[in-house]
Design a binder for these strands. Structure first.
Lengths: 242, 242
DNA sequence: CGCAGTGTTGACCGATCTCAATCCCGGTGG
DNA sequence: CCACCGGGATTGAGATCGGTCAACACTGCG
């Protein structure tokens, strides 16, 4: 579900192209790492850097896919909704990850910033054209998409077959792995309880109850708000089973 | 979830290469459609045609991904399991679809034939090497994988947020669209009730109950066994909501 | 200090699961 | 032609997990 750890900084809504790709923080990890100088310069001319605020939506489900891009800083959620408004988060996007649906088609998900964020965006048509000319980009995208598909399918097991306890524990383990580093260290959850519920297919209260049970069992600590520290990683992993 | 309609014929377990790609039934739709004569001949030399029986497993979850291929005839399921044996079907594979995980990595799913089937298989290493040399293949794979990812994510909405009724109705609608053609026509479900449950994240009894409710409501007919006729497609679609 | 938004807790309800009995269809053998 | 058999499918009864509704607590901020 999660791809790469990343940090968030202040952001504003201006667009600029003042920085070259050389200074780009995700240069080595994003799909552009497959490009050499000339091609990179060409791609650079097609893109611009955009800052978005937490909560802002970049693409709407079933609208035409007008833009694609790389995440530079911050995190996004991908979500879909039923016609009556039930929401399911289908992916979390981290810095260096790719956003949007290249090659025709409507966007199948809504893309919303979970934190203030900055991205390097391209008009979809222009990007498609560039990709046609540059197999390296398609190759990089392919590998990324295959990984993403594996992750989505693993999540289907969670949604279809796991209990609430297992789901919440799985999420916390993944969070800790991604954001936390050493055990015992405190991390800041990037998701509200509601968003955790939307990701896990659970009601907000069920998420909350599971977490207090884990806290009472001494497996985690919740110093308040979105702060989390994993006390017993093995125990938590056991609760996640899978 | 489903990609292409297909038929099933008798099959045996022998492998052969007697037929050229020209006569291949999925030539126009599989990823090899991106190849010209010479490259196609080269790929043909790497592959062989294999027949498998219903129930036979090609790849096991978390084993090394040793082979990939194109489905010629028949259908497969992709599935994952929890450590204690709960199963989730994460995809159904139809003729002309691609099977397996190219580019390193373990297979993340078990691939099992739902019907007698035949496929055109390659050793994964050999296929990877070929793909490196032929961007067209990677491009075709990319488009396919993007579609598959969209489908997987749509299914996540079903698993995470839909009721049992909606799930079963959604599946039947999709089945009818894929296999049925005209409304009222009878189709043969490729899945047992158990497999429908494993795909929908439901207990077998829940699937069965939903179907009899649909039958009693006159929306579908169940002439017995795996046979199904959709009587009121609009009504069924309404039950599927989404 | 109070307000608003978020998170927690409790009580209750209902959808879905589980367990178990029965049914039905297709195939087999007498 | 029919009785029997086996496996999948259906049906029923009861248990349970998670959802819903509602009250309350906490946190951060003006």
């Amino acid at each position: 579900m999660f791809e790469t750890a990343g940090t968030t900084r202040d952001a504003d809504e201006t667009a600029d192209s003042t920085h070259g790709c050389e200074s780009c923080g995700v240069r080595a990890r994003a799909i552009c790492c497959s490009l050499d100088g000339a091609a990179l310069a060409e791609l650079h001319r097609l893109g611009r850097r955009v800052h978005v605020r937490r909560g802002q939506t970049l693409l709407w489900e079933s609208d035409e896919s007008v833009l694609v891009g790389n995440v530079l800083e911050g995190m996004f959620k991908l979500s879909t909704m039923t016609s009556d408004g039930r929401e399911q988060i289908v992916g979390i996007v981290f810095p260096s990850d790719f956003i949007g649906r290249p090659f025709g088609r409507d966007s199948q998900q809504t893309v919303t910033a979970l934190t203030d964020a900055s991205i390097c965006v391209f008009r979809r048509g222009a990007f498609d054209g560039f990709a046609e000319e540059h197999p390296g980009i398609q190759q990089a995208l392919l590998r990324r998409t295959l990984d993403e598909l594996d992750r989505a399918r693993r999540w289907m097991l969670l949604l279809g077959r796991m209990t609430a306890t297992e789901r919440v524990a799985s999420l916390l383990v993944e969070m800790a792995d991604r954001l936390g580093g050493a055990s015992g260290r405190e991390i800041m959850l990037p998701l509200s309880r509601q968003q955790m519920g939307d990701l896990l297919g659970l009601a907000i209260e069920t998420v909350s109850r599971a977490m207090t049970r884990f806290k009472d069992a001494g497996v985690i600590a919740l110093p308040g708000g979105r702060r989390l520290a994993v006390r017993d990683r093995a125990g938590l992993r056991r609760l996640a089973s899978a």
